[in-house]
């Protein structure tokens, strides 16, 4: 099965072979990026609009660089400061942008399902850059590529995802992707930050870090949002770090060659000890950022190809 979809809205609908195709293409771009030979003509003449209804410097920059490296005309729209404030609905915003005939819409929205809704109303390709607590597909793909490069494979690995799983779209997309690729997934979090019904996801659930990390190949840490730290979900920052923060002692329970990942931005001293984050023998956090650009280049390249193919099939001139 090759990746033929018009949009990339989530990992859930993808077949393992589609995931592999996306990763192979991204691997190709990662090499070209390192050689400084990214092809500027792949998205030449195409318009990419980044619509971020929720602030994100890193992801937005990553999508912008990815688009520009492939020659797209990239435009950033700060949706929080625009018509949304004037009461325009999401669908009207989508229809307005659609009338400007962009080729790629990259959308982040604070509500789960909002990007799906928007995708139903536009003619161009839509790329989900994170919707509420639902999905963040390019993050899961870049994590997968990073793991594959570090471990030489993306199956039969034992992978721990630790932290605020309940509110994390990164966790959901990663559970989907790593599960489809036949890995053992262990979720580690205080029960207040574990989503309901999670045991039915085909994962192992732990509330103890040391037990959960035992003999894993990969440790994925999640960011803990500031607003959830004080009393609501966990008693305090320091108690959280003590029980769930990744430090050398806890990491010692993982395999000796286990890698450490974090989607960023990190709270040093809350979910992760600074020295571990900076340990070049364990941490692949910088590589994740690098792979992020490559994965987004691959996703946009494939979506643009699919759109071209669809136009040719229907006989419309590109």
């Amino acid at each position: 099965m090759t990746f033929r979809a018009r949009h990339l809205l989530g990992i859930e609908p993808l077949h393992p072979t589609e995931i592999t195709e996306l990763l192979d293409t991204a691997q190709h771009y990662a090499e070209l990026n390192r050689q400084g030979r990214a092809p500027r003509d792949v998205l030449a003449g195409l318009t990419q609009i980044n619509m971020f209804f929720e602030n994100s410097t890193r992801t937005q920059a990553s999508f912008e660089i990815a688009g520009k490296r492939l020659g797209a005309d990239v435009m950033n729209m700060a949706m929080q400061a625009s018509s949304v404030k004037k009461g325009e609905t999401l669908i009207d915003t989508a229809l307005t942008l659609n009338a400007m005939r962009p080729d790629l819409l990259v959308v982040r929205h604070p509500n789960s399902g909002a990007v799906d809704l928007l995708a139903q109303k536009v003619n161009c390709s839509v790329l989900n850059a994170g919707d509420g607590r639902h999905e963040h597909p390019t993050q899961a793909l870049l994590d997968a590529l990073t793991i594959r490069r570090a471990k030489g494979r993306l199956h039969r690995l034992s992978i721990a995802i630790c932290g605020d799983i309940a509110h994390s779209r990164v966790a959901r997309s990663n559970i989907m992707l790593l599960g489809k690729m036949e890995n053992r997934i262990r979720l580690i979090a205080p029960p207040t930050l574990m989503p309901s019904g999670v045991a039915e996801f085909g994962v192992e659930v732990f509330d103890d870090m040391e037990e959960g990390l035992r003999d894993v190949d990969v440790v994925m840490m999640l960011r803990l949002q500031k607003e959830r730290m004080d009393g609501g979900f966990i008693p305090s920052e320091r108690e959280y770090f003590h029980r769930y923060g990744l430090d050398a002692a806890k990491l010692a329970h993982a395999k000796p060659d286990a890698i450490v990942m974090h989607p960023g931005p990190m709270n040093r001293g809350v979910e992760i000890d600074g020295t571990i984050a900076d340990d070049i023998n364990r941490s692949v956090i910088q590589e994740q950022v690098e792979m992020g650009v490559a994965v987004r280049m691959a996703a946009m390249d494939l979506l643009a190809r699919n759109a071209r193919a669809a136009r040719q099939e229907t006989g419309v001139m590109a």
């Binding site: 859930e12 789960s112 399902g113 919707d131 509420g132 607590r133 639902h134 999905e135 309940a166 779209r169 959901r172 989503p195 309901s196 019904g197 999670v198 039915e200 996801f201």
Partner: peptide
């Protein structure tokens, strides 16, 4: 499970 899958 459904709520968690959909992130709602």
């Amino acid at each position: 499970k459904f709520a968690s899958l959909r992130g709602l």
